[in-house]
Design a protein around this nucleic acid. Structure first.
Lengths: 148, 148
DNA sequence: ACAATGTCGTCAGTCTATCTGACCATTAAT
DNA sequence: ATTAATGGTCAGATAGACTGACGACATTGT
């Protein structure tokens, strides 16, 4: 078989991470979370994010993002607060329960990062991260460079 | 913002490629293809693939894969033939129309590969591919090594 | 000041993609 | 020969995604 395109390999690796994280969370009792909800929640900033930002980051329409945030809110993972700087907007913030989940998720991500680093070698793993960050400059239309 | 996990960056890059390919195909008149159908079609081997293989490669259930193959078949991109080596199985094969689409898709993939190679440098781009292939060994449960 | 235009988010409606569970046919293992 | 495993389909349910339209507020320019 010919060399698969890097994107195909990224698909495999990325899905593996999502799956590992989600399964870990399910085992820990957060078994009402779905993959789509997780993709939204994973992109929440510490100080809260606007719906439109979340939608762009997760590559879905704002309607879809709103639907998922509704569910996360009903399940108690996030809450919506008015944005003090813009009365049209609302900030989606993690609740305490949400923060606990995020900690769990990050634990798994760190574990996987260690596995990858061990498998590739620490130096090459760092180089992988650097290259992916550079690719973002030409693949992510909403990416404004290191400053954002 | 802290360094995002490599998987997040892979998500962005991989989605970008899917989107570019699909938009190109739409422009070329193959505007009945959906993303999900494309994910299945992209994983079809030259000599045909079994439904179960496709499902595993695309990370969906065999029912979902069957549903999508039905659509691809109705649209004339693939055909199902009996598998001569196993009477339970059928092989999903590209039709002429399907092969034409695959050529178009590969053209875009090659263009993107060149862009990435230019952006990262040829040597680093090769190294990226090598690392992703190595990661597959620990992230893809259906991967049997270079022999498959 | 105010009109025009743009952005944030929601409502309504639709349809695709996905899942679970059950099932049949065939193959492989004991 | 049974029994278990594998390849695939059928049926039903639902999540998740889209388009389009809209109301509320913000920004910009005159």
């Amino acid at each position: 078989m010919a060399d698969p395109h890097p994107a195909v390999l990224m698909f495999v690796a990325q899905r593996h991470v999502e799956k590992q994280v989600l399964e870990h969370l399910w085992e820990r009792g957060y078994d009402d979370l779905t993959l789509a909800q997780g993709r939204i929640a994973a992109r929440l900033g510490e100080h809260g994010s606007r719906l439109t930002e979340l939608a762009e980051a997760a590559q879905v329409t704002k309607q879809s993002a709103g639907y998922l945030v509704d569910q996360l809110e009903r399940a108690g993972y996030v809450e919506r607060r008015p944005d003090p700087t813009d009365a049209r907007a609302r900030l989606v913030c993690l609740s305490d329960r949400g923060r606990a989940v995020q900690q769990e998720a990050r634990t798994v991500e760190r574990r996987i990062a260690r596995e990858w680093s061990r498998h590739l070698g620490a130096e090459r793993y760092r180089e992988l991260g650097a290259m992916l960050a550079e690719l973002r400059e030409i693949t992510d239309p909403w990416w404004g460079g290191p400053s954002s």
